[in-house]
Simulated assay, not measured.
Amino acid sequence: MVNNSEENPWQITSQEEVYSNPWISLIHHEVINPSGNPGIYGKIHYKNRAIGVLPLDKDMNTYLVGQYRFVLNQYSWEMPEGGAPLGTDPLDSAKRELLEETGLKAHRWTELNRIHLSNSVGDEYGSVYLAQDLEQFEAEPEETEQLIIKKLPFSEVYRMVCNSEITDSLTVAAVLRVQLMIMEGKL
């Protein structure tokens, strides 16, 4: 049966926070599912908004950050990223992350995307920006970051996305959006 309503068909009968740290909490829900049957649902609540910044210089070069990602157990190339505490201005956090990870400051900012990163078990939400008119300063990485910075032509980064050499969702979304802007003559 197809339901044409956009109203929430889930009923929560109880919920319990089963784990919490400064970044996430895990909530166990007892529910009545859309078909009317009892069930369970686990939700990961993120306490920060994900932030991504795609820096692009006047020569159409961009900067990737390479680091070993603990949860993936593999090395990852991606644009500068971080988190913004909920309720704060995400652009301020984007500016901070760009400087921390690359040493770059941008004089022109464009919001590219607002994106849900997982809609099945997590409520993580992200904001992605294009940073232009760049100036180089000293990078200030956090103690948990062992970073390698790579300056590449944007066309090479687009190729890496298309060949799944870059798999980070924020980076993929940003690169594809900027490529579309280039093709439409908007950049």
Score class of each variant (00 low, 15 high):
Asn8Glu: 11
Asn8Ser: 15
Asn8Ile: 10
Pro9Met: 10
Pro9Val: 13
Pro9Thr: 13
Pro9Cys: 08
Trp10Ser: 09
Trp10Gly: 05
Trp10Phe: 15
Trp10Thr: 07
Gln11Trp: 07
Ile12Trp: 04
Thr13Glu: 12
Thr13Lys: 15
Ser14Ile: 09
Ser14His: 14
Glu16Gln: 14
Glu16His: 13
Glu17Ala: 12
Tyr19Trp: 14
Ser20Val: 13
Ser20Tyr: 02
Ser20Gly: 03
Asn21Ser: 13
Asn21His: 05
Asn21Asp: 15
Asn21Gly: 06
Pro22Ile: 00
Trp23Cys: 00
Trp23Glu: 01
Ile24Cys: 09
Ile24Val: 15
Ile24Trp: 02
Ser25Ala: 09
Ser25Cys: 08
Ser25Gly: 06
Ser25Ile: 01
Leu26Val: 14
Ile27Tyr: 02
His28Ile: 04
His28Leu: 12
His29Pro: 00
Glu30Cys: 10
Glu30Ile: 06
Glu30Ala: 12
Val31Gly: 00
Val31Leu: 01
Val31Pro: 01
Val31Asn: 01
Val31His: 00
Ile32Lys: 02
Asn33Arg: 11
Pro34His: 13
Pro34Tyr: 13
Ser35Asn: 06
Ser35Glu: 12
Gly36Gln: 08
Gly36Lys: 09
Gly36Ser: 11
Gly36Phe: 08
Asn37Gly: 11
Asn37Thr: 06
Asn37Trp: 06
Pro38Asn: 08
Pro38Cys: 02
Gly39Ala: 09
Gly39Ile: 05
Gly39Met: 10
Gly39Glu: 05
Gly39His: 07
Gly39Phe: 07
Ile40Lys: 09
Ile40Asp: 02
